[in-house]
Design a protein around this nucleic acid. Structure first.
Length: 287
DNA sequence: ACATCCACCTGCTCGC
DNA sequence: TGCGAGCAGGTGGATG
């Protein structure tokens, strides 16, 4: 659910609500949220307390808040993570995992996560030339950041030997794309999800990249996709891009381009949606 | 180095 | 009504 556009919406909310503020206290609930912070909750809390939040940044689906001591508070929303800016007196919700209170006594930052695939961690391992925390250096640039090199992407994906949807879901090749926007981008590029990456023409990949970039930017513009209350942006507003989805979740509906009925299929243990006419199946397995 | 599979979670919906 | 199965799906470690 939270893919790049939703995470960007959350990043903008964090910028609005917490950048420039000093952390006065930290509370963590449960074990799983800090599982990536290997030094444990006591270390996390101690190192965060007293720090000022300097910025709110993102690569793909990862968020981080650079702090005034050159460490970074890393966050991943997983499937159901939310950041909420709430007044301290608001009673804690059922899925509250962590809360940061500030020395200005203003709204606190709460991290909620129903399914606990998300998490927080603190890193002081430094940053790369792109300004990305070293612990995230396995995450490829996303298509809307300056460090993204389209030529490099075209070359890299055509060297892979896999299906095109698998490739664009691989965060080490291109980051930010999840199951929803992958299907939307493939529809825009008129590509079947199982098309062999090493048989794609340059023009296919360029069309695909254009589709990915366009759908991500349009979704950001719209405030991110939301299906239900699981996804809420940092100030509590849900997105509405789901009204604009062309294929995802649209099985049985006519394709807006050709009128054929959208189908739902399973691919890599996930649902995939496509137009059977615009995105026809490879005939002999590979093509 | 690369590709694939599955565990990790909770809560909702569906069918019997 | 109860209950289990299926489903949602990002990440990363294990396995090939």
């Amino acid at each position: 659910m939270p893919e790049l556009p939703e995470v960007e919406t959350v990043r903008a909310g964090l910028e609005r609500w917490v950048v420039g503020r000093r952390i006065a206290s930290v509370e963590v609930r449960g074990e799983r949220t800090l599982r990536r912070h290997l030094l444990g909750p006591a270390d996390f809390t101690a190192r965060l307390t007293g720090r000022r939040i300097a910025a709110a940044r993102r690569r793909g689906k990862y968020l981080w808040l650079p702090l005034d001591d050159d460490s970074q508070l890393l966050a991943h929303l997983g499937m159901s993570g939310q950041f909420l800016a709430l007044e301290p007196e608001v009673p804690p919700g059922a899925h509250l995992r962590a809360r940061l209170q500030f020395d200005d006594d203003g709204p606190e930052l709460r991290f909620h996560d129903q399914r606990t695939f998300g998490g927080l961690a603190l890193s002081d391992a430094g940053i790369t030339d792109d300004g990305v925390p070293l612990v995230l250096s396995h995450v490829a640039p996303d298509p809307i950041e300056p460090a993204f090199d389209p030529e490099r992407f075209v070359t890299a994906i055509r060297r892979r030997r896999t299906g095109v949807k698998r490739a664009i879901l691989d965060q080490t090749l291109i980051s930010g794309v999840g199951n929803i926007y992958a299907d939307e981008a493939l529809w825009r590029a008129k590509l079947h999800y199982a098309r062999a990456t090493d048989r794609l023409r340059r023009s296919d990949v360029e069309r695909l990249l254009a589709g990915i970039t366009a759908v991500l930017l349009e979704a950001i513009q719209a405030g991110g996709t939301s299906f239900d209350a699981l996804y809420v942006s940092v100030n509590g507003e849900s997105g509405w891009f789901d009204r604009s989805l062309e294929v995802y979740g649209q099985d049985g509906e006519p394709c807006s381009r050709c009128g054929a009925l959208i189908v739902r299929e399973h691919f890599t243990n996930r649902s995939s949606y496509r137009c059977p006419k615009c995105q026809p199946k490879p005939r002999n397995g590979r093509w």
